[in-house]
Design a protein around this nucleic acid. Structure first.
Lengths: 332, 332
DNA sequence: TCCTTTCATGTAAGCGCTTTCATGATCGCG
DNA sequence: CGCGATCATGAAAGCGCTTACATGAAAGGA
């Protein structure tokens, strides 16, 4: 990768401006000259340096994405949608995970210096840093976060689907509930889910902290809960991973799901579909989230739009067997 | 992000060389001068342009990764391990998916121009392009691919674990087998798995094509197979996703796993653990693969090593309930 | 034939940063 | 006191590329 435009120009017997014009199609080039240039390019196997192009153009042709941790299918699916659209738009995707990293501020700013804009997940970046990035004029789209002045936000709908989920469970006749995976911050996705189910179930539901939204933490908290004196008839979990943990706990304690205790999740990840019983959950349009984020960012980067936008994508209740028996069981 | 080193230099009343020296610690700077520079940096909120630094240094401080498609937990886990080590080494990670993309060659070369080296999965990149990248001097590590002159390769062990898996199944007394998910290319991971089990089972096993290694394809092929006249007693699957499809097929046909038909997978993804029955599989050290790839690439990039290396990481047979009953069942 | 327009091409100035080398000042040693 | 070494700093040259603007040639129209 050591050939420069100067060598191509010399071999073709033209100026570097003509080489650039030929390759980029930005100006007139005589047919014969064009042939000479393309021949030299081929012989020398020349590919323009991304660095040189980006510096000269003043743009990186790249998008950043910052997430707390890629572990968990939710983030992966969003990344997939994001990368696909970014690539269609001619941009690379540079990733950064912040979990367990020191000097997050430096890492994020370094990333900002490499890309034309960034997608940031919820609270992967602390509030003061988020505000600073906005102030610095970085083009930003936040996912699953309250609207922030100067940046786009994008999230999935939580409250209505949480209400629908809770209503569905009451339709099974259950009267005592627990919400596993209490919200860690206010106004984030999980808090909205909690608010939604609490709206329907009121005093019939209590929130139980898991600390993190992982299978292991879900398992531990559910085991403690199910061994207690006040065992809920149904456990509504913050997300599918916590729900998978709850399924494991029920299994270990010899409890039937949904016969003894119903369990629901959120996200509709692969493992939720393949668990037995298959999890009733709420499907998030994760790829769509990523794709929409990439398009929103494109508008900001190209200057097509400079007024921040706040989008909410719909979610969908997915009824499977973990919440209870249904008169007409369908294949999951 | 518009502040340049010239503005900092002007405000501090020094040259840009002194600003650079101060920030990078590459040469002597008087204490008083240093204070003036740092003050200016703080007041102007200056962060060096990644582009400028990279062009001047002649290095990108970034690693690339090319995969066929991120869908499926296998790739995600590798990416996690890779990104973590790359970040420790002060490098960003730029991702590229090649599935369904036209002009893969251009995309990959563009990526090569943005990074100091790349990790490429198996056959995400066609053979001629792989050879061309090597010829161009790109620092490369391939995962799950036969040794290629001039590049590192890294893979998980397949044959020995496949043999162990097949031997375990014969220990259950089964005599008729199918291998679901026939190899698409020779000498790749799946081919090695097939060779391993065939070595043990010989004429007692036949390979069945799925076309792709997905749940849906596994489901279709397994349904056809299990409805046929020559139903195997055990299905060894190329990977966990195909195996999950086979579980679904058995379920739909009212067959008990492992009572009527045993099923095994490969990878040990989350969904394999949470399926019921939980899948017997072979655990790939996916994160370790990614981490090792990042370290190998670092050696090539820094020039610590310039002789290609070929590594094989061990895999581990994980016995769960899908292969048959065991005298001492353990929690999965 | 002359003038205007269009095509084609090259020169030069950046884009933002790093670093080599030259220079001046100061300090220490003989 | 003079010389050599060390410290501190700035000027200049790139790193690889894009593109505005100037210039010459050719073509077309009056």
């Amino acid at each position: 990768m050591d050939v420069t435009i100067y060598e191509v120009a010399k071999r073709a017997g033209v100026s570097i401006a003509t080489v650039s014009r030929t390759l980029r199609g930005t100006g007139p080039v005589a047919a014969r000259t064009r042939e000479k240039v393309l021949k030299a390019v081929e012989e020398l196997n020349y590919t323009p340096s991304r660095l040189g192009v980006s510096l000269a153009e003043g743009r990186h042709a790249a998008n950043g994405i910052v997430f707390p941790d890629l572990a968990g299918p939710y983030y992966t699916e969003v990344l997939l949608g994001y990368e696909e659209v970014a690539s269609e738009l001619g941009r690379s995707v540079v990733i950064l995970s912040t979990k367990g990293r020191s000097k997050v501020g430096d890492l994020v700013k370094d990333l900002a210096g490499r890309v034309d804009g960034m997608l940031i997940f919820g609270h992967a970046v602390p509030e003061p840093l988020a505000a600073e990035l906005v102030r610095l004029g970085v083009r930003l789209v936040f996912i699953s976060r309250d609207p922030l002045p100067g940046a786009d936000t994008l999230r999935s709908e939580n409250i209505a689907s949480a209400r629908a989920l809770a209503a569905h469970l009451t339709g099974h006749g259950y009267e005592r509930f627990a919400f596993l995976g209490a919200p860690l911050t206010s106004r984030d996705d999980v808090d909205e889910r909690w608010q939604g189910v609490k709206h329907v179930l009121g005093g019939a539901i209590e929130a139980v902290d898991t600390g993190q939204y992982t299978v292991d933490r879900g398992f531990e908290a559910a085991r403690t809960l199910l061994k207690g004196r006040n065992r809920p008839r149904a456990i509504i979990c913050s997300d599918d991973e916590v729900a998978l943990g709850a399924l494991l706990a029920a299994e270990e304690l010899g409890l039937e799901v949904p016969g003894d205790v119903a369990v629901t999740g959120w996200d509709d990840i692969m493992a939720a579909r393949h668990a037995r019983p298959a999890l009733t959950t709420v499907r998030q349009p994760m790829r769509e989230l990523g794709a929409r984020a990439a398009r929103a960012l494109d508008e900001l980067i190209t200057g097509t739009r400079d007024v921040p936008k706040h989008l909410i994508l719909t979610t969908e209740l997915v009824i499977r067997s973990s919440c209870g028996h249904h008169p007409q069981e369908v294949r999951t």
